[in-house]
Design a protein around this nucleic acid. Structure first.
Length: 592
RNA sequence: GGACCUGUAGCUUAACUGGAUAGAGCAUCGCACUACGGAUGCGAAGGUUAGGGGUUCGACUCCCUUCAGGUUCACCA
């Protein structure tokens, strides 16, 4: 239990004796005291006035006196308007640093959580939008793990369908047997090239048909290339050997390419699902729903659900010819996942374009009475847009993931070499460092914003390496390491420090208070499912440490006790930066 | 047209879910190291929180309304 909770509890319990009535725990609001006031922790008394039946000052005074008498950590208080500012004994902060141990005391339910993220199509390479998805999904998984939950990272690969056939067809027609090796291209890039190629020729065909007097709609449906792609899909579904062979070959090219990108991004998965295995699932559940009268059949034989009572529309769940639609598959896959893992929560990291789809999916499963329905959560994040609008693979208006990563590494390299601090590094060490910095900057950039908000990315403006950025924090870490390298025994936990003869410098105290919040922030960012919270916090840690660093000599401290204590602060700052970054998937360098 | 999301300094953004004078970074201007890493620190300037109304001790936050931008409402996935 941290000191905020402790005070809250204490006031909660004493309240009847002090004021003659009970109070709800959550009415007692405890904040940090803003810097411009004296004190460390503030209790806001306004919400309590109806129960205390006294004016703000008197109520605050009663509580303040009670706390100073009954809590040895509280040494005094002052009252401004309805704010009770409590002063904490400096020894409390000092003890916290000298005796700090990992507290896993928070009683929270450990849950099993499946997080599906990434989930790419195999007809084109990954772009910046996917990068945001991957980085977010990985960070979210890390945050759940760090809070003691069991996490399964899953990737549902969209490896079949008409879009895949388009790439296949274009390759057949225009590829001349080209392979990644012969073209010197990453596999996903090669396949993506033919996806674009398809679209080009398709458009030409449409124009020709329109010139012949057809309407645009007719032309779009009748274009020979599209017909051919649809035929190919049929062949695929019927297991035509040649088609399957081509499909396998091209998908393997793509997988090889994805693997490189995933590795660069540092993301990984515990379980892969393939849509080619799952696309037939869900039909039996539709049958079940018909029997339960959750669904109904129209005259043509198609099956629907009526969600107009929930403010939504009617939604088709099975075509008249008995084939599945998107939602059918998702119903089936949800069931499959649950049978595989029996998880408490199933989280889908998918863009906010699909808010409607997931609302429907959850509703359907709830209506069907599935035990896992309530555990389904759409982790909806904002799109990454360009100044010119949406990224569209077909039209080539995308920021390619590999290119972006390369660019980031290149600017990290430029920046670092200009400073000339690592001239003694080997080539290997150098390239590892540039990656650490470049990817750190990229991931930090994507994670620092509230996931719900869309990101506007201007390729002309490079991602910053200064200020509120990953490298800023990495630099601070390197600084702590640099200092610690100079002293031999850095584990000074057997404190050579007696708390009585040490008075805290203001910036030391500030730093301790920030470090103190680590577990609180970590829990919050999990509760709110918001990695940006943690990112913002690490930045605050780094900033506060840098201030301390500028104001307090460490190795040259006057007293031995001072020096040891500051080394401890340095060590713990480094640990927290490293841990927090590791949770969200950002590396940290020993030197930079 | 219905539903959902967003709007905070020139730009990118935060605000403990209703708390004190709305906090940072970039850009601009000024200042600071005979110490441990200057990818640093301090300061100045920059705000009618899109506009209007309401709720109350107190509103960026909740309610109503107007405006602007986005997404979605496919027998595509």
């Amino acid at each position: 239990m941290n000191i905020f909770q402790e005070i809250q509890q204490q006031v909660h319990q004493a309240f009847p004796a002090l004021f003659g009535s009970d109070v709800e725990l959550n009415k007692i609001t405890i904040n940090e005291t803003p810097k411009e006031f004296i004190g460390d922790i503030t209790l806001v008394v306004f919400p309590l006035l109806k129960l205390t039946k006294k004016n703000p000052e008197e109520s605050a005074k009663t509580i303040g006196e009670f706390l100073t008498e009954n809590n040895t950590n509280i040494t005094g208080f002052n009252i401004i308007k309805g704010f009770l500012n409590l002063e904490i004994n400096p020894n409390y902060w000092i003890d916290y640093i000298t005796n700090r141990q990992q507290s896993t005391d928070d009683i929270q339910q450990k849950e099993k959580i499946l997080i599906e993220y990434s989930s790419p199509n195999t007809n084109k390479p990954l772009h910046l939008g996917h990068v945001r998805n991957n980085v977010l999904g990985y960070a979210l998984a890390g945050i759940y793990k760090a809070n003691g939950h069991e996490v399964i990272k899953a990737n549902l690969i969209n490896d079949r369908g008409i879009h895949i056939c388009k790439s296949m067809l274009a390759w057949q027609k225009f590829g001349n047997g080209e392979t990644p090796e012969s073209a010197g291209l990453k596999g996903d890039k090669l396949v993506g090239k033919y996806y674009v190629e398809f679209d080009k020729h398709y458009k030409v065909e449409i124009e020709e048909l329109v010139a012949q007097g057809k309407s645009k709609e007719e032309a779009e449906k009748q274009a020979p290339l599209l017909k051919a792609a649809q035929e190919m899909l049929l062949k695929w579904e019927n297991g035509d050997a040649e088609t399957i062979e081509l499909w396998k070959t091209m998908n393997n090219w793509v997988y090889a390419g994805f693997e490189v990108t995933y590795k660069n991004l540092g993301v990984d998965f515990d379980k892969f699902y393939y849509e080619s295995n799952t696309y037939l699932l869900g039909k039996d559940i539709v049958e079940e729903g018909l029997q339960k009268n959750v669904f109904f059949k129209k005259e043509d034989g198609s099956v629907w659900i009526d969600l107009t009572d929930e403010g939504l529309d009617q939604k088709i769940v099975l075509r008249a010819d008995g084939t599945s639609v998107y939602i059918t598959q998702d119903i089936g896959t949800a069931d499959l996942k649950y049978n595989d893992f029996k998880m408490d929560q199933s989280i889908y990291v998918v863009g906010n374009e699909q808010d409607y789809h997931f609302k429907v999916l959850k509703l359907i499963l709830q209506k069907l009475g599935k035990p896992y329905a309530n555990g389904i959560q759409h982790y909806s994040y904002g799109m990454v847009d360009l100044p010119s609008g949406k990224m569209k693979s077909r039209e080539g208006t995308v920021v390619d993931a590999d290119d972006l990563i390369d660019d980031m590494i290149a600017s990290a390299k430029e920046q670092t070499e200009a400073l000339g601090k690592i001239d003694d590094f080997t080539e290997e060490e150098k390239s590892a460092l540039f990656r650490t910095i470049g990817l750190g900057a990229l991931k930090f950039f994507l994670l620092r914003v509230d996931p719900k908000k869309r990101i506007l990315f201007d390729p002309k403006e490079s991602i910053d390496l200064q200020g509120y950025t990953g490298p800023f924090v990495q630099y601070t870490y390197a600084r702590t390491r640099s200092i610690l390298r100079r002293v031999e025994n850095i584990s000074t936990h057997d404190s050579r420090l007696t708390t009585h003869d040490y008075s805290l410098h203001p910036s030391e105290k500030e730093l301790i208070k920030v470090l103190y919040k680590y577990t609180i922030v970590l829990a919050d960012s999990c509760k709110e499912m918001n990695p940006a919270k943690l990112i913002d916090y690490v930045y605050e840690v780094a900033k506060t440490y840098n201030k301390f660093y500028n104001e307090c000599p460490i190795l040259a401290a006057e007293k031995e006790a001072e020096k040891n204590f500051r080394l401890l602060l340095t060590e713990q700052t480094g640990n927290i930066i490293k841990q927090s970054f590791a949770i969200v998937g950002i590396d940290v360098p020993e030197r930079m």
